[in-house]
Design a protein around this nucleic acid. Structure first.
Lengths: 163, 163
DNA sequence: TATTGTTATACTCTATAACTATA
DNA sequence: TATAGTTATAGAGTATAACAATA
């Protein structure tokens, strides 16, 4: 039994009690819904693939931002990653406590911290990156390389759309 | 100042202290990162656009699933939406308490609840849908209709990729 | 005055284990 | 035994207000 797609027929007494029969008519037309589902799919698989390293998505974002921008301030790193300053504190503490990054008072501004990868952090990020490549290759195996690039390009344009 | 993209040059003493200068070299190549950013962008704007209605993304998902599948069980609705059963309870309670849905014991299985929209819920979902269309049109205004459809198609294929 | 980092706090989302009532 | 819904709980993620030190 496939249920009607039309809201005009909601007076029916049909029931949808099995997942196979269920339609998601409206939701399927919404980009936001699909972003929600796919991003949570990626988050769950990321956690499974890298959980033993203790590297969560947020933490990898911070690590790789520091790697690509050595000496970056805590606040600046948070800003590009969309992490608010109060929430950066415990995340950076976590990475420092685990010996993956170093936090030094900036010479030119003694309020600020300059963040650097430690050698251990540099190793850790490489290990993580290998795992992440595998995890993305697995989840995206039904897309061609072109489609994958297209997807990144579309998402990037959405991110860059500014008020 | 634009920082080097090469990890081989991380020995530099350059600092990236302003957001404009910061590169996200590795992250920008990861689909998971872009999904994370765009989905959180959509979630934040959704909350702003529909906050006064008290309709959050999850709640809209439940409401529209009930609308498109009247009489669906609580568990079945959660299953298609990726919401675990324990977490459905308070969400459904919320919608019942606000008079947007009705919960009736199923005739054929007295453990189960059949969920139905109330007339107020049917009105509410229409209002919400108008707002959501506007909100999506705004966030996706830099994409053509074809690109939007392409994006939904790509995301849907990722969702349907099964182990 | 403004900014960097901090603390405290709260709310949502998600996940697991254990219970009850029905099947 | 298995399933539908429930309760309790805990861990992330995210948001705001208020503070100290420094600019």
């Amino acid at each position: 039994m496939i249920l009607s797609a039309s809201p005009m027929e909601t007076g029916t007494t049909d029931h949808a009690t099995e997942a196979d029969e269920v339609r998601l008519n409206v939701l399927d037309t919404l980009v936001g819904y699909h972003l929600r589902r796919t991003s949570s799919l990626f988050a769950a698989d990321f956690a499974e693939a890298l959980g033993d390293l203790g590297i969560r998505q947020v933490l990898f974002g911070i690590l790789s931002t520091i790697r690509d921008n050595p000496g970056i301030n805590q606040g600046a790193a948070g800003k590009v990653l969309g992490i608010q300053r109060p929430n950066m504190v415990s995340l950076v503490n976590d990475l420092v406590d685990r010996g993956l990054i170093e936090r030094r008072v900036a010479r030119d501004d003694r309020r600020a911290f300059e963040l650097q990868l430690t050698p251990a952090g540099a190793v850790q990020i490489e290990t993580a990156l290998e795992r992440i490549r595998e995890h993305e290759d697995l989840l995206l195996r039904d897309l061609t390389a072109d489609e994958r690039q297209m997807l990144i390009a579309l998402l990037t344009r959405i991110e860059r759309t500014r008020d």
